[in-house]
């Protein structure tokens, strides 16, 4: 691993000022489960000179519900979210997503803030020793286009000629389905607007901006939420595709739906077409399947990832049925 300085921040303001001082040469660190792996594997073309430690900032690790709003501090660990009774009761999709993230060890380290700010997954981008200096690293091409793209975006790239890497977060689609907001050191952003399709970034955050907490409105009484994930093994792995849904219904009929897929695109993919199809329907296999098909109607799979379309469709179907 390259040398770096490790700076403990005691307040958000201090962390922000350190970030300003270093410009783009600093990175924030909380659980470190994504960042340290990247640094150890020497995948980057440039390394942060300083890591700004957020764990030393008090008061960012909490889960509370007030006035029908769930507040989660950015430093709250995924395991704590997964087992929290309030989250499990009222915000099932989020608890389930946290619970399906990585492995028990990693959930004890990784934070919700880090989980939504994590970097993309692509085995060219993440190949050890920066073997593929790809578009995302300032290089000239996206290796996935002509290469082994079985796990790349099925809904197109950041730009025409790449990057086809996918956003791998399990909690992100849950937050979007639950219509959460992300509070930062500067502003409040809708979860649906938080993620960004850009070759070098995954979020809309400025260089000196820090996520401080997540706000999730309690779903209405007639709503249920759920999260499903498809991965190659029963634990540890990143999703091939995951999906979260929040569905309100009255008298067995769907009255409103928010459905979000992830790991199928450069950012979480809101399945608006599926939402349109399922509203007004009852919870049954055929309609859920139709909604799944609608969700992938705009898919543009690459030569080797056609299978992911099938998985995305099935995940939408199963997420809907899980809310029935």
């Amino acid at each position: 691993m390259k040398k770096f300085s490790h700076v403990n921040a005691l307040t958000i303001d201090e962390a922000v000022s350190i970030l300003r001082r270093y410009g783009d040469r600093a990175s924030l660190i909380a659980g470190g489960t994504d960042l340290l792996g990247k640094m150890k594997d020497r995948i980057l073309s440039r390394y942060p000179e300083a890591l700004v430690n957020l764990k030393t900032i008090p008061g960012l690790d909490f889960i509370k519900e007030e006035n029908r709003i769930l507040e989660i501090g950015a430093l709250t660990r995924l395991e704590d979210i997964a087992i929290d009774q309030t989250v499990r009761g009222g915000y099932a999709a989020l608890a389930q997503a946290a619970n399906r993230t990585a492995s028990p060890h990693l959930r004890e380290m990784g934070t919700i803030g880090g989980n939504i700010c994590q970097d993309i997954r692509c085995w060219y981008y993440r190949h050890p020793n920066n073997r593929f200096p790809c578009l995302r690293k300032g290089g000239g091409r996206c290796y996935a286009i002509e290469g082994d793209n079985r796990y790349h975006s099925i809904f197109g790239g950041s730009v025409e000629e790449g990057c086809y890497a996918v956003h791998p977060s399990d909690t992100a689609p849950a937050l979007i389905a639950l219509d959460a907001e992300i509070r930062t050191s500067k502003r409040t952003i809708k979860a649906g607007d938080f993620f960004q399709v850009e070759v070098t970034k995954t979020t809309v955050l400025d260089e000196d901006e820090i996520v401080t907490k997540i706000l999730v409105p309690r779903p209405p009484e007639n709503a249920k939420s759920g999260f499903v994930k498809f991965a190659l093994r029963k634990t540890i792995d990143f999703p091939i595709v995951n999906c979260a849904a929040l569905i309100s219904s009255s008298e067995g009929k769907v009255s409103a739906a928010r459905i979000c897929l992830n790991a199928g695109y450069v950012k979480p993919y809101r399945a608006s077409r599926a939402e349109e199809v399922i509203v007004g329907k009852t919870f049954n296999e055929a309609d859920a399947e139709a909604a799944g098909s609608a969700a992938v109607s705009e898919a543009k799979p690459l030569p080797h990832n056609g299978y992911m379309v099938q998985i995305a469709k099935t995940m939408v179907k199963r997420a809907i049925l899980a809310c029935g």
């Binding site: 085995w123 190949h127 050890p128 290469g147 082994d148 093994r233 029963k234 634990t235 792995d237």
Partner: peptide, 20 residues
């Protein structure tokens, strides 16, 4: 792929976990 190994590490060279 072209003589290069894509999955150099156990994060994507998959072996069964105890749950599998």
């Amino acid at each position: 792929e072209g003589g290069y190994i894509q999955n150099l590490n156990l994060k994507n060279y998959l072996i069964p976990t105890s749950l599998d």
